[in-house]
Amino acid sequence: MNGNECISETLGDYVLVRLSGEVDLSWSQQVRRAILDALGDTGKVGVELSQVSYIDSSGIAALVEGFQNARSRNQKFGLVGVSGAVMAVLQLARLDRVFPIFADLDAARSA
């Protein structure tokens, strides 16, 4: 009802974790689990953020943890369709150049 959703979609060898709503401490553990699970299933994971209107540092931490896990195991991890709200926080955390960021799913899958 509050618009917060975390849905993992499998598209062949690619898993897309779709987030929407406001990612904050009340459910960021759920987001973290979904990202780590996806990385356990496949070598290519994206997190879709176009419908995220707010993200706090605990949500950012879930993304960072996914990114670091993927890198250590030579997996691919990227952010897809980053909303303005999320980008502002990534910039504040100086992480906007750390994550691979893709405009849409096609670009992410073909990377």
């Binding site: 706090d56 540092s57 931490a61 879930a62 960072v64 943890e65 670091q68 504040l92 955390a93 750390v98």
Partner: peptide, 18 residues
């Protein structure tokens, strides 16, 4: 320091930067 990429301690850094 925000220039290092790590998950923890971001909150206080955000406060300090803002």
């Amino acid at each position: 320091d925000l220039s290092e990429c790590r998950a923890g301690g971001l909150g206080v850094a955000f406060i300090d930067a803002t």
